[in-house]
Design a protein around this nucleic acid. Structure first.
Lengths: 277, 277
DNA sequence: TAAATAGTGTCTTTGAGACACTATTTC
DNA sequence: GAAATAGTGTCTCAAAGACACTATTTA
């Protein structure tokens, strides 16, 4: 349901007064993931203002609500996420590198007190990006960078002891942790690992995406056969990469993303026994 | 990130004025599912006020924001969902039947224009409940009832043609559709089907939950063996039901939910080929 | 030349699903 | 007694994973 302040629209608008409501702010935060040097990285910005001034945080900001009339300046939530991403990376949203980015809603975080200034409801988005250039700080960020996820000392999924996840502003460590777990799961049953690669990629490159996100080494031979056996996961370009592996080996063939939206059968992570109970 | 209206908190609070912001309302809507007479039902309320007066809608309402100080009246999002559910069902939130309800966040819906009166961001929750008594209308609802999902004429998952999902107020048909798809998926890899049953249940009862949610008949023998073979899905009570099947058959044994949080291996739906591309 | 890697072959084990069958209960 | 149902046995096929092997490339 939705607010019931007045009986109908015209009467409502005539008597409209924002002070009738407890004020709430709605923001969008983005967990933008990419692979750099074979390791999973997340886009962070350093805060230029209080609170948490000087700390690293997820990129994000206000949603343009557009006032009660919700005119053309009213902004949809995914658009706000793309805008924040573009502002922080300095890349253009349409057509450019951001056009290849996968974006999905992650969850909404609205506990009282998560922002000391006022009640803030934050809608978090999760983005998978191919390798992008170093970001340039924009807006109210003092700095921006791709940070290796492993170096952040995050708690593992399921481990929610307080104190283990306190290196980011607000509850952003928790949001990032949720985003990472979502990403791990998504690679199992969707072909979204290809969103971390460019337009063309090799099977070993795809495997390194899985290894970076899952934090586990995979058997090269079995992975290769599995990827090719799932209908619609990848399709061959017919071409061959111009270089072999870093320390030797034949030149791998090139593929692009196929037309599947779901992997069937799925590519399940090995050894998840601990997570089951 | 979060709002940056002022440099620090004390200064912010001194100069605080809600009119500095475009007003936004935050609501919680609940997709509450249960099984009645072997069919999946959703809790709906009939709206007593404009807009969409007289139409059926998901139960929901305002989140108590608590003002800028976010005092004790500030309400967390899941608490708001439980409160709305309790108000509409007339059941007590703690200890009572609602204590057995599974609740999870479904997603957030905030497109401009989804509510004609003002910008409204709605956080949707998904609830799995065992069979509950008929609801009693409360709050601003003119009526409340468990409605069979099949009779709502919803579009199938993936089918988002406009016009096919227009029997509920606002974008609630879309929210319900998303909730149903989430529920179908959750039964595959979590033991949450047990949340639709009471404390003790038989394997055939559990199977009827799967059949109602998936809309497909399952092979009784294979289902039985599968459920017992997944570690931690169910545990035996040692007892036996006091009646056999409706039209004959031996008395099935009783089980309760086990300690698994994930099913491994998962219980995959048959015949999903259409959904893959 | 040595080491690493791409890609394929093969074997074993597990699990899903089809089918059959017995025992038990309701009408 | 007839029909339906609970639960188990068994067979087949698909798939995951371990292991082995060849061919190709880099340092």
């Amino acid at each position: 349901m939705t607010p019931e302040p007045r009986r109908d629209e015209s009467e409502f608008l005539a008597k409209y007064d924002p002070r009738d409501y407890d004020p709430v702010a709605v923001t969008v935060d983005v967990v933008a993931l990419t692979i750099r040097d074979g390791a999973l990285h997340v886009l962070l910005v350093r805060r230029g203002n209080a609170p948490y001034e000087g700390m690293w945080a997820l990129p994000g900001g206000f949603v343009q609500a557009g006032g009660p009339l919700q005119g053309t300046d009213a902004e949809d939530l995914p658009d706000a996420a793309v805008r924040e991403l573009a502002e922080e990376t300095g890349l253009s949203a349409k057509g450019g590198a951001l056009g290849r980015v996968h974006l999905e809603q992650l969850g909404t975080y609205g506990s009282p007190g998560r922002d000391p200034r006022m009640r803030v409801i934050s809608v978090a988005y999760l983005a998978f990006a191919p390798e992008l250039p170093d970001p340039e700080a924009g807006g109210d960020a003092a700095d921006a960078a791709w940070a290796p996820v492993d170096a952040l000392g995050l708690a593992e999924s399921g481990d929610q002891r307080p104190g283990t996840t306190r290196r980011l502003a607000f509850d952003h460590a928790r949001i990032l942790s949720d985003g990472l777990e979502r990403a791990r799961g998504k690679l199992e049953y969707t072909p979204l690992a290809a969103a971390f690669c460019g337009g063309e990629f090799t099977i070993p490159e795809l495997r390194s995406v899985y290894e970076a996100v899952w934090g586990e080494e995979l058997h090269a031979g079995n992975f290769h056969r599995k990827v090719l056996s799932v209908p619609g996961f990848v399709e061959s370009t017919g071409a061959t990469s111009d270089r072999g592996g870093r320390r030797g080996g034949p030149r791998p063939r090139l593929y692009r993303a196929g037309d599947a939206r779901l992997l069937h059968p799925a590519l399940l992570r090995p050894s998840r026994e601990e997570e089951i109970r």
